[in-house]
Design a protein around this nucleic acid. Structure first.
Lengths: 254, 254
DNA sequence: CGGGTCTTTGACATTCCTCAACTCACGTGG
DNA sequence: CCACGTGAGTTGAGGAATGTCAAAGACCCG
């Protein structure tokens, strides 16, 4: 199910992504890979890794699999506020807060590395490029969260869903998790509804509308985008906010 | 209109706020106040300070007045993604991005300090507590943005508006910008609509509903909340995400 | 006094939600 | 091998929340 190799292979998405955010020195890569290999963990699908209100004392880096951040209102209404994709970090600087404001759960089975706060801080102090890369990631998260804000506030249902597909695809691609015009999309329609602020029923109809328009093919947990420009256009997708990846245009990784 | 004093008075909100995020050393406060006094600027209401796509080469700290961050879709639909209140920063670390993903405009006349990137980085390197405080601010911004995400995605109109009122009030209070159960609220209903993702007409009706329920008094750019708990309850407001201010429970400022 | 912006109101249209049921695939235990 | 249960996806019908259009007040300022 999960394409996994040795530890170096597992860390690949992380290194590749951070490297796009900020070029890493060789020693930074080595130190990061060592830290990752020392704190490997796995979790099954549907597990709650972090609950709202928890104090955070470590940094988690996702090696493979999907997670999502979510918040729930008293009466049960739930909002997925973001996904965490392979190579991404469960908030590098969240430990600065006395407690976390949201929950994190796994969507699929997941492999991740956990770096304890003291170790992480030592790492940041000794590897300047690594510290900058993680800073960039936090700033980028902020930009993504703003885009979600306008997505939920001002886009129509069809645009919301199309936009989410565009964003996920564009986030997966630079770390090598897109295959041509397809990518993994291991999320139920209920989760999609909670991510777009729609009801499950309306989300289902919206997805069907996108299918009927030939904009997406979504089946067996795989998303295929026959015409990315068309989908972006339907979504009013403008990739500026993901621009930290801009440098990826140059030397194609691998 | 604006209660303003000397420069030390102007910097007060900034120092107070950062100090709540992370206790500042005396030398940090002194260095910060010096940096602020060296780069004072003013802007009138309705000015665009930063446009989407601009490269950022300085950090701006708001001494008085309101600004807001916003993004606009191709067809003109606009979303205010956050407000920037006195004492807050226009993204301490935004210069890490090649270009900014959103625009920043003034809602009122504004006094702010601009610290050039090299100066700011020197400051961060020499004053550890200051660097940590600004880091906290960035992380807190992230948490606030997530709360806006659920606000727009899952709350009903009345709850959205009530929630915004609660949040703004709770953000103004710790820096001394609330007066009893009132605070300044210098924002048009059009802006409020764009912040809550509603149409102006529906926003207007929602505000009137809140008025009729006795939950708010809003006139002459001033918001009064007769019963904060009642408003919070109507908003399903849970202050956890603003928790960095938790320490403010101790020594009440001023 | 006139023009602008902001707020308010009414009537109507539309999007999206809710409820309820049915299908389909899959796995489990009898 | 089949009955059953469960979770996900789908469909229909009706209703509630919110948007759009249009116009009228309210207020401010030159």
């Amino acid at each position: 199910m999960r394409s996994q190799g040795n530890e170096g292979g597992l860390a690949q998405a992380v290194v590749r992504r951070l490297n796009l955010l900020r070029p890493l020195s060789e020693s930074a890569v080595a130190a990061l890979e060592r830290a990752i290999s020392e704190g490997l963990f796995r979790a099954g699908p549907g597990e709650d890794l972090v609950a709202e209100g928890d104090p955070i004392d470590s940094v988690r880096v996702v090696l493979s699999g999907w997670l999502f951040r979510h918040k729930t209102l008293e009466d049960g209404r739930r909002q997925i506020v973001n996904f965490i994709l392979p190579g991404e970090t469960c908030d590098a600087h969240a430990y600065l807060l006395p407690a976390i404001d949201h929950s994190i759960s796994t969507a699929t089975s997941v492999a991740y590395a956990e770096i304890k706060r003291p170790h992480f801080e030592t790492l940041m102090a000794s590897e300047r490029t690594l510290a900058e890369a993680f800073m960039c990631e936090t700033v980028l998260n902020n930009a993504i969260q703003r885009e979600w804000t306008i997505n939920l506030g001002r886009r129509a249902a069809l645009e919301k869903v199309a936009h989410l597909f565009c964003e996920i695809y564009e986030r997966l691609r630079p770390v090598g998790h897109a295959d041509g015009n397809s990518c993994s999309f291991p999320v139920t329609q209920m989760d999609l509804a909670d991510a777009t602020g729609l009801s499950v029923v309306h989300l289902n109809r919206t997805v069907q509308e996108l299918r009927a328009a030939g904009l997406i093919i979504l089946r067996e947990r795989t998303l295929t985008i026959p015409d990315l420009d068309a989908l972006k256009s339907a979504a009013l997708f403008s990739p500026g906010y993901l621009q930290l990846y801009r440098q990826s245009k140059g030397p194609s990784p691998q």
